[in-house]
Protein backbone atom coordinates (compact mmCIF):
# COMPACT_ATOMS: atom_id res chain seq x y z
CA UNK A 1 0.00 0.00 0.00
CA UNK A 2 2.65 2.56 0.92
CA UNK A 3 4.62 1.48 -2.15
CA UNK A 4 1.58 1.96 -4.37
CA UNK A 5 1.08 5.39 -2.81
CA UNK A 6 4.68 6.29 -3.64
CA UNK A 7 4.06 5.08 -7.18
CA UNK A 8 1.18 7.51 -7.57
CA UNK A 9 3.29 10.27 -6.08
CA UNK A 10 6.06 9.43 -8.49
CA UNK A 11 3.70 9.67 -11.45
CA UNK A 12 2.30 12.91 -10.13
CA UNK A 13 5.84 14.23 -9.82
CA UNK A 14 6.57 13.38 -13.40
CA UNK A 15 3.40 15.09 -14.59
CA UNK A 16 3.95 18.07 -12.36
CA UNK A 17 7.58 18.09 -13.41
CA UNK A 18 6.51 18.81 -16.96
CA UNK A 19 4.33 21.69 -15.90
CA UNK A 20 7.06 23.01 -13.60
CA UNK A 21 9.33 23.05 -16.61
CA UNK A 22 6.75 25.13 -18.46
CA UNK A 23 6.37 27.44 -15.49
CA UNK A 24 10.17 27.85 -15.39
CA UNK A 25 10.16 29.01 -18.97
CA UNK A 26 7.51 31.59 -18.21
CA UNK A 27 9.44 32.75 -15.16
CA UNK A 28 12.56 33.16 -17.21
CA UNK A 29 10.63 35.26 -19.68
CA UNK A 30 9.57 37.63 -16.96
CA UNK A 31 13.09 37.63 -15.47
CA UNK A 32 12.30 36.61 -11.90
CA UNK A 33 15.74 36.67 -10.35
CA UNK A 34 17.32 40.05 -10.77
CA UNK A 35 19.59 39.63 -13.72
CA UNK A 36 20.86 41.52 -16.71
CA UNK A 37 19.26 40.74 -20.06
CA UNK A 38 19.35 42.28 -23.50
CA UNK A 39 15.92 43.67 -24.49
CA UNK A 40 15.33 42.95 -28.17
CA UNK A 41 14.51 46.58 -29.04
CA UNK A 42 17.61 48.01 -27.31
CA UNK A 43 21.01 48.49 -28.92
CA UNK A 44 23.80 46.13 -27.88
CA UNK A 45 24.78 46.73 -24.24
CA UNK A 46 28.14 48.28 -23.46
CA UNK A 47 28.81 46.30 -20.27
CA UNK A 48 28.91 42.58 -20.91
CA UNK A 49 30.18 41.36 -17.52
CA UNK A 50 33.54 40.27 -18.89
CA UNK A 51 35.78 39.53 -15.90
CA UNK A 52 32.67 39.78 -13.73
CA UNK A 53 30.33 36.87 -14.55
CA UNK A 54 26.91 37.56 -13.08
CA UNK A 55 25.46 35.37 -10.38
CA UNK A 56 22.36 35.83 -8.24
CA UNK A 57 24.52 35.81 -5.10
CA UNK A 58 26.88 38.55 -6.25
CA UNK A 59 24.02 40.67 -7.61
CA UNK A 60 22.36 40.43 -4.20
CA UNK A 61 25.56 41.58 -2.46
CA UNK A 62 25.55 44.51 -4.88
CA UNK A 63 21.96 45.33 -4.01
CA UNK A 64 22.76 45.28 -0.31
CA UNK A 65 25.76 47.55 -0.83
CA UNK A 66 23.64 49.98 -2.84
CA UNK A 67 21.20 50.34 0.05
CA UNK A 68 23.73 50.18 2.90
CA UNK A 69 24.74 53.34 4.81
CA UNK A 70 27.94 51.51 5.80
CA UNK A 71 29.44 53.13 2.69
CA UNK A 72 29.13 56.67 4.09
CA UNK A 73 31.64 58.03 6.59
CA UNK A 74 29.12 58.54 9.39
CA UNK A 75 26.97 55.58 8.29
CA UNK A 76 23.94 57.82 7.70
CA UNK A 77 23.33 57.63 3.94
CA UNK A 78 23.39 55.04 1.22
CA UNK A 79 23.18 55.34 -2.57
CA UNK A 80 19.41 55.27 -2.13
CA UNK A 81 19.42 58.70 -0.50
CA UNK A 82 19.96 60.32 -3.88
CA UNK A 83 18.64 57.47 -6.05
CA UNK A 84 15.14 56.57 -4.88
CA UNK A 85 13.68 53.51 -6.64
CA UNK A 86 10.05 54.73 -6.84
CA UNK A 87 11.33 57.97 -8.36
CA UNK A 88 13.21 56.20 -11.13
CA UNK A 89 16.31 56.23 -8.92
CA UNK A 90 16.40 60.03 -8.96
CA UNK A 91 16.02 62.33 -5.95
CA UNK A 92 12.72 64.22 -6.03
CA UNK A 93 13.28 65.99 -2.73
CA UNK A 94 16.56 67.81 -3.36
CA UNK A 95 17.69 70.05 -6.18
CA UNK A 96 21.31 69.04 -5.69
CA UNK A 97 22.84 65.83 -4.48
CA UNK A 98 22.58 65.70 -0.71
CA UNK A 99 25.62 64.34 1.13
CA UNK A 100 26.54 63.69 4.75
CA UNK A 101 26.66 66.55 7.27
CA UNK A 102 23.89 68.32 5.30
CA UNK A 103 26.26 69.12 2.47
CA UNK A 104 25.03 69.70 -1.06
CA UNK A 105 26.73 69.14 -4.38
CA UNK A 106 26.33 71.36 -7.40
CA UNK A 107 24.32 69.11 -9.72
CA UNK A 108 21.05 67.22 -9.62
CA UNK A 109 21.25 63.49 -8.88
CA UNK A 110 20.68 61.71 -12.18
CA UNK A 111 18.00 59.06 -12.58
CA UNK A 112 19.38 55.54 -12.96
CA UNK A 113 18.27 52.93 -15.46
CA UNK A 114 19.80 50.88 -18.24
CA UNK A 115 23.29 51.67 -16.97
CA UNK A 116 24.78 48.69 -18.81
CA UNK A 117 24.35 50.70 -22.03
CA UNK A 118 26.53 53.61 -20.91
CA UNK A 119 30.21 54.03 -21.63
CA UNK A 120 30.49 57.14 -19.46
CA UNK A 121 28.79 58.22 -16.28
CA UNK A 122 27.84 61.43 -14.49
CA UNK A 123 26.59 64.67 -16.07
CA UNK A 124 30.11 65.40 -17.28
CA UNK A 125 30.92 61.84 -18.36
CA UNK A 126 34.03 61.86 -16.21
CA UNK A 127 33.66 58.24 -15.20
CA UNK A 128 34.55 55.71 -17.83
CA UNK A 129 33.26 52.41 -16.48
CA UNK A 130 30.28 51.11 -14.54
CA UNK A 131 32.55 49.21 -12.15
CA UNK A 132 34.47 52.29 -11.04
CA UNK A 133 31.32 54.46 -10.96
CA UNK A 134 30.40 53.92 -7.27
CA UNK A 135 33.86 54.97 -6.10
CA UNK A 136 33.02 58.60 -6.97
CA UNK A 137 30.04 59.19 -4.67
CA UNK A 138 31.52 56.94 -1.97
CA UNK A 139 34.77 58.94 -1.75
CA UNK A 140 33.47 62.43 -2.59
CA UNK A 141 33.86 64.58 0.58
CA UNK A 142 30.49 66.25 -0.05
CA UNK A 143 28.67 63.01 -0.71
CA UNK A 144 29.49 59.85 1.27
CA UNK A 145 33.08 60.85 2.15
CA UNK A 146 34.48 57.39 2.78
CA UNK A 147 37.95 56.37 1.59
CA UNK A 148 37.85 53.11 -0.34
CA UNK A 149 40.41 51.66 2.06
CA UNK A 150 38.05 52.38 4.96
CA UNK A 151 35.07 51.00 3.04
CA UNK A 152 36.93 47.75 2.49
CA UNK A 153 37.97 47.59 6.16
CA UNK A 154 34.34 47.96 7.20
CA UNK A 155 33.18 45.22 4.85
CA UNK A 156 35.87 42.91 6.17
CA UNK A 157 34.65 43.58 9.73
CA UNK A 158 31.03 42.84 8.79
CA UNK A 159 29.81 39.30 9.45
CA UNK A 160 27.33 39.46 6.59
CA UNK A 161 29.72 40.79 3.96
CA UNK A 162 32.63 38.67 5.11
CA UNK A 163 30.68 35.45 4.65
CA UNK A 164 28.78 36.62 1.55
CA UNK A 165 31.95 37.59 -0.30
CA UNK A 166 33.66 34.39 0.85
CA UNK A 167 30.75 32.35 -0.46
CA UNK A 168 30.18 34.11 -3.78
CA UNK A 169 33.67 35.39 -4.68
CA UNK A 170 35.65 32.71 -2.87
CA UNK A 171 37.86 35.24 -1.10
CA UNK A 172 39.04 35.48 2.50
CA UNK A 173 39.86 39.16 2.24
CA UNK A 174 37.43 41.56 0.53
CA UNK A 175 39.15 44.05 -1.76
CA UNK A 176 37.70 47.16 -3.39
CA UNK A 177 37.53 45.24 -6.65
CA UNK A 178 35.06 42.74 -5.18
CA UNK A 179 32.88 45.49 -3.75
CA UNK A 180 32.86 47.42 -7.04
CA UNK A 181 32.15 44.36 -9.15
CA UNK A 182 29.22 43.36 -6.93
CA UNK A 183 27.77 46.86 -7.19
CA UNK A 184 28.22 46.78 -10.97
CA UNK A 185 26.22 43.56 -11.16
CA UNK A 186 23.30 45.18 -9.37
CA UNK A 187 23.54 48.48 -11.23
CA UNK A 188 23.74 46.79 -14.62
CA UNK A 189 20.56 44.88 -13.76
CA UNK A 190 18.50 48.07 -13.39
CA UNK A 191 16.69 47.59 -16.68
CA UNK A 192 13.73 49.74 -17.62
CA UNK A 193 12.13 48.37 -20.80
CA UNK A 194 8.41 48.10 -20.00
CA UNK A 195 7.01 51.59 -20.62
CA UNK A 196 4.17 52.16 -23.11
CA UNK A 197 6.80 53.67 -25.42
CA UNK A 198 8.66 50.34 -25.32
CA UNK A 199 5.49 48.49 -26.32
CA UNK A 200 5.03 51.02 -29.14
CA UNK A 201 8.61 50.52 -30.35
CA UNK A 202 8.08 46.77 -30.30
CA UNK A 203 5.13 47.16 -32.67
CA UNK A 204 2.01 47.73 -30.54
CA UNK A 205 0.93 51.02 -32.13
CA UNK A 206 -2.35 51.04 -30.19
CA UNK A 207 -0.65 51.58 -26.85
CA UNK A 208 -0.27 55.33 -27.42
CA UNK A 209 -3.42 57.47 -27.72
CA UNK A 210 -3.82 60.16 -30.38
CA UNK A 211 -2.41 62.95 -28.24
CA UNK A 212 0.61 60.85 -27.25
CA UNK A 213 1.21 59.98 -30.90
CA UNK A 214 1.02 63.66 -31.79
CA UNK A 215 3.57 64.31 -29.04
CA UNK A 216 5.75 61.51 -30.38
CA UNK A 217 5.72 63.12 -33.84
CA UNK A 218 6.79 66.45 -32.35
CA UNK A 219 9.42 64.62 -30.27
CA UNK A 220 10.77 62.94 -33.39
CA UNK A 221 10.98 66.28 -35.17
CA UNK A 222 12.54 68.36 -32.42
CA UNK A 223 14.07 66.17 -29.70
CA UNK A 224 15.00 62.86 -31.20
CA UNK A 225 18.36 63.97 -32.63
CA UNK A 226 19.80 63.76 -29.12
CA UNK A 227 17.18 61.79 -27.20
CA UNK A 228 17.37 59.03 -29.76
CA UNK A 229 16.44 55.38 -29.87
CA UNK A 230 14.88 53.15 -27.26
CA UNK A 231 17.17 54.58 -24.58
CA UNK A 232 16.18 58.16 -25.49
CA UNK A 233 19.78 59.32 -25.45
CA UNK A 234 22.69 59.28 -27.88
CA UNK A 235 25.06 59.50 -24.86
CA UNK A 236 26.61 62.70 -26.23
CA UNK A 237 27.30 65.96 -24.38
CA UNK A 238 25.34 69.06 -25.36
CA UNK A 239 24.53 72.52 -24.23
CA UNK A 240 20.79 73.12 -24.32
CA UNK A 241 20.70 76.86 -23.67
CA UNK A 242 19.68 76.93 -20.04
CA UNK A 243 21.93 79.94 -19.57
CA UNK A 244 23.91 82.31 -21.77
CA UNK A 245 27.08 81.95 -19.71
CA UNK A 246 29.27 79.14 -18.42
CA UNK A 247 28.10 78.66 -14.84
CA UNK A 248 29.34 75.07 -14.65
CA UNK A 249 32.13 73.82 -16.90
CA UNK A 250 30.42 70.43 -17.31
CA UNK A 251 32.06 68.25 -19.93
CA UNK A 252 34.73 70.90 -20.40
CA UNK A 253 36.01 70.20 -16.89
CA UNK A 254 36.86 66.67 -18.05
CA UNK A 255 38.21 67.31 -21.53
CA UNK A 256 39.72 70.77 -20.80
CA UNK A 257 38.37 71.82 -24.23
CA UNK A 258 36.72 75.23 -24.63
CA UNK A 259 34.17 73.76 -27.04
CA UNK A 260 32.96 71.44 -24.26
CA UNK A 261 32.37 74.13 -21.65
CA UNK A 262 28.79 74.09 -20.39
CA UNK A 263 27.95 70.80 -22.08
CA UNK A 264 26.27 67.99 -20.16
CA UNK A 265 25.31 64.42 -20.88
CA UNK A 266 22.08 64.04 -22.83
CA UNK A 267 20.04 62.21 -20.18
CA UNK A 268 17.77 59.30 -20.90
CA UNK A 269 14.14 60.43 -20.56
CA UNK A 270 12.94 57.13 -19.16
CA UNK A 271 10.58 57.61 -16.24
CA UNK A 272 10.97 61.37 -16.69
CA UNK A 273 7.55 61.96 -15.15
CA UNK A 274 9.03 60.71 -11.86
CA UNK A 275 12.62 61.97 -12.02
CA UNK A 276 12.09 65.64 -11.19
CA UNK A 277 13.61 68.13 -10.81
CA UNK A 278 15.04 68.48 -14.30
CA UNK A 279 18.34 69.49 -15.90
CA UNK A 280 21.83 69.21 -14.41
CA UNK A 281 21.17 72.33 -12.37
CA UNK A 282 17.67 71.29 -11.27
CA UNK A 283 16.34 74.58 -12.61
CA UNK A 284 13.07 73.14 -13.95
CA UNK A 285 10.47 71.54 -11.71
CA UNK A 286 7.78 70.16 -14.02
CA UNK A 287 7.49 68.60 -17.46
CA UNK A 288 5.53 71.68 -18.54
CA UNK A 289 8.52 73.85 -17.58
CA UNK A 290 10.86 71.54 -19.50
CA UNK A 291 8.75 71.81 -22.66
CA UNK A 292 8.41 75.57 -22.14
CA UNK A 293 12.20 75.84 -22.00
CA UNK A 294 12.54 74.25 -25.42
CA UNK A 295 9.58 76.27 -26.70
CA UNK A 296 10.59 79.74 -25.56
CA UNK A 297 13.58 79.66 -23.18
CA UNK A 298 16.64 78.59 -25.16
CA UNK A 299 19.45 81.07 -24.53
CA UNK A 300 22.44 81.93 -26.70
CA UNK A 301 25.23 79.97 -25.02
CA UNK A 302 28.57 79.94 -26.92
CA UNK A 303 28.39 76.13 -27.13
CA UNK A 304 24.63 75.86 -27.72
CA UNK A 305 23.80 72.76 -29.75
CA UNK A 306 23.19 73.82 -33.37
CA UNK A 307 19.92 71.85 -33.55
CA UNK A 308 18.41 74.20 -30.93
CA UNK A 309 17.16 77.63 -32.08
CA UNK A 310 17.91 80.58 -29.82
CA UNK A 311 14.59 81.65 -28.36
CA UNK A 312 13.08 78.17 -28.72
CA UNK A 313 10.83 76.21 -31.07
CA UNK A 314 7.70 78.30 -30.32
CA UNK A 315 5.38 75.33 -29.75
CA UNK A 316 1.62 75.99 -29.71
CA UNK A 317 -0.17 75.25 -26.44
CA UNK A 318 -1.68 72.12 -27.99
CA UNK A 319 1.73 70.91 -29.07
CA UNK A 320 3.19 71.54 -25.61
CA UNK A 321 0.42 69.45 -24.07
CA UNK A 322 0.98 66.70 -26.61
CA UNK A 323 4.71 66.64 -25.84
CA UNK A 324 4.05 66.35 -22.11
CA UNK A 325 1.57 63.54 -22.79
CA UNK A 326 4.16 61.69 -24.83
CA UNK A 327 6.86 62.14 -22.17
CA UNK A 328 4.54 60.48 -19.66
CA UNK A 329 4.39 57.42 -21.90
CA UNK A 330 8.03 56.87 -20.94
CA UNK A 331 6.97 55.94 -17.42
CA UNK A 332 7.74 52.29 -16.72
CA UNK A 333 5.55 51.26 -13.80
CA UNK A 334 6.98 47.74 -13.74
CA UNK A 335 10.42 49.27 -13.13
CA UNK A 336 9.23 51.74 -10.51
CA UNK A 337 7.34 49.04 -8.61
CA UNK A 338 9.91 46.25 -8.96
CA UNK A 339 10.53 44.91 -5.47
CA UNK A 340 13.78 43.30 -6.52
CA UNK A 341 15.13 46.85 -6.85
CA UNK A 342 14.16 47.90 -3.35
CA UNK A 343 16.04 48.18 -0.09
CA UNK A 344 16.58 44.61 1.16
CA UNK A 345 17.64 45.55 4.69
Amino acid sequence: MPLAKYGVVLWLCLIIGVSIKCADDRLEDSNPSLQFYQPSHFPQAEYLFSNNPQTAGITEIGRRLFFDPILSRDSTISCENCHVPVSGFADPSHAFSHGIDQQFGSRNSPALSNLAWYSSFMWDGGIAHIETMPSAPITNPIEMDLALREAVLRLNRSTYYKSAFARHFGVDEIESQHMLKAMAQFMASLISDQSPYDAFLKGDKSVLNEEEKKGLNLFQTHCNQCHSGALTTDFSFKNNGLSDSVEDEGRGHITTLTVDLGKFKVPSLRNIEKTLPYMHNASLQTLEEVVEHYSSGIQAHPNLDPSLPIGGFQFSDDNKEALVAFLKSLTDEAYLQDHRLRNPW
Binding site: N51, N52, M122, G126, I127, A128, H129, I130, E131, T132, S135, A136, I138, T139, N140, A147, L148, R149, A151, V152, E175, S176, Q177, L180, K181, A184, H253, I254
Partner: peptide, 24 residues
Protein backbone atom coordinates in the same frame (compact mmCIF):
# COMPACT_ATOMS: atom_id res chain seq x y z
CA UNK B 1 43.60 49.90 -18.25
CA UNK B 2 42.27 53.29 -17.21
CA UNK B 3 38.87 52.36 -18.62
CA UNK B 4 38.73 48.61 -17.94
CA UNK B 5 36.74 48.50 -14.73
CA UNK B 6 37.65 47.67 -11.15
CA UNK B 7 41.28 46.63 -10.83
CA UNK B 8 43.29 44.96 -8.09
CA UNK B 9 46.88 44.83 -6.83
CA UNK B 10 48.98 47.89 -7.70
CA UNK B 11 45.95 49.29 -9.54
CA UNK B 12 43.50 48.88 -6.64
CA UNK B 13 41.72 52.27 -6.49
CA UNK B 14 41.98 52.04 -2.69
CA UNK B 15 45.68 52.88 -3.15
CA UNK B 16 44.43 56.48 -3.66
CA UNK B 17 46.23 56.76 -6.97
CA UNK B 18 42.89 56.93 -8.79
CA UNK B 19 40.69 59.91 -9.59
CA UNK B 20 37.19 58.75 -8.82
CA UNK B 21 35.41 61.78 -10.35
CA UNK B 22 37.33 61.67 -13.62
CA UNK B 23 38.17 58.03 -13.74
CA UNK B 24 41.76 57.47 -14.42
Amino acid sequence: RNVSGAQTGALDPANTMFWTWNSG
